[in-house]
Nucleic acid binder design. Structure first.
Lengths: 240, 240
DNA sequence: CGAAGTCTTGAATTCTATCAATAGGGGTGG
DNA sequence: CCACCCCTATTGATAGAATTCAAGACTTCG
């Protein structure tokens, strides 16, 4: 029942939007869902959460749409038996809960200090109702999410431990706009990464060590990495 | 960048839509994307494909939206090194390629004999532009796809081989509306299932054997199964 | 009826998880 | 400001699960 396709062209713009708050000035079309949300900025309530605080729980009524201003959020599914799956990490500029829905299908938790803007569902719906452009961006955004999920399905379905870690680091670097050779912060814990990649914390640790030993990355400290050999890393990840 | 939520209420209707061609008569609201497509049925071209025939390839221009009338389709990503990932299987009533996109992010291949209706992208877009209701259904449909993908991420990320197979069988039974005790056709090959669940063909075979040995299912033949102990199967799948 | 392809089953190998212990880092309180 | 403690990460050894390699059985189709 899946079926999809994607607005690939929208990807770069979406990734870049966190930085381009002023937007619209720099050439191409970085108009995204986030920009449309800014037109209703005044209706949004600024909220702050501290580390590991819950923003909303799976099953909660989905009364708001959130735009992350600062910090990192993890979306996860918790299970009765304690198992947890981290669906994705969200970064500044990302939007959560953008679909008509009676309740939240996942929980959202602050990985770091987080500040975000919460828009009442009604405002969001009104925006979508009144603006064809906003609607289009909403569809693009959902396509992005779907493509992203499918890409990750491939990672979980086909790749080995070290390949998964390589894919994870590459995607994170892309989203954070961190260049090869620059330090990249890993705000999430090894456990978070493990639950996102379907591995254990020990395997994550060993994979990272293996990448370091192979000279693909540098590790100034446990929560920063530097991509040293981008080509080799990409070959490993081999995103087909 | 994920973020999502879902129109859970839309699920049953969507699953049921394949059967409810006349629809709209039976009480609740089985109005879905498919029904809206039927309003532009006359613009669609009926097409037929035989087993293993390609409907479109990854990277092809996305010029059409397809509604499956009969048969089973697999969406997959092929990789240079031969690895393949089956994103999902599509059944009668399902819609493919419903998002603004320059090209197809996955390939679509006929698992069985397939007949479908192909709508020009422009017709589909016009429908979405002119009908608020159709737009809403489109969003619900995408939400469904996204939730489905996320559910599957959980399966690949957290579950063991036998649990994955149990989840797969349960979801298939639900979608095909096959009751416990009834025969269910498995149109796809073990290899298809393996590539969908991130396992090997041998492991699929062993898992199915294990489920049979445990009395959870019966296997009249290699391409049919009967769910014998629904509760135990659900416990195994443990979809949290 | 025979052949090709698919599925099942078995044995050995490989990868990851699990169990266990140590090391490192950050925060708190003295 | 430093020492201590707790939490997190790393590393090692072992066990377990799935893959791989290999062979045989069953279907299906010509």
């Amino acid at each position: 029942m899946i079926a999809l396709s994607t607005a690939r062209a929208a990807t770069p713009a979406f990734f870049a939007e966190a930085a381009a708050a002023s937007s619209l000035a720099d050439g191409a079309a970085p108009v995204t869902l986030t920009h449309h949300l800014q037109t209703i900025q005044s209706y949004g309530a600024r909220q702050h959460y501290s580390r590991n605080e819950t923003i909303f729980n799976q099953g909660d009524e989905a009364g708001h749409v959130y735009r992350i201003v600062d910090g990192t959020v993890r979306l996860c599914r918790h299970r009765p038996d304690g198992r947890r799956y981290v669906v994705d990490f969200l970064l500044p500029g990302d939007v959560i809960g953008f679909v008509e829905s009676p309740d939240q299908p996942v929980s959202a938790e602050a990985v770091t200090e987080v500040s975000l803007v919460a828009f009442p569902r009604a405002c969001f719906d009104r925006l979508a109702r009144d603006s064809a452009e906003a609607r289009k961006q909403l569809l693009c955004h959902m396509s992005e999410s779907l493509l992203s999920a499918q890409q990750h399905l491939f990672v979980l379905g086909c790749q080995k431990a070290t390949e998964r870690v390589a894919s994870f680091l590459l995607r994170l670097a892309e989203r954070l706009d961190v260049m090869s050779g620059e330090r990249m912060d890993l705000f999430m814990s090894r456990q978070d990464i493990a639950d996102h990649l379907g591995l254990t914390i020990e395997t994550i640790s060993r994979s990272i060590t293996a990448l370091r030993s192979g000279g693909l990355i540098l590790i100034p400290n446990a929560h920063q990495i530097i991509i040293r050999d981008l080509v080799a890393l990409r070959t490993l990840a081999a995103e087909g």
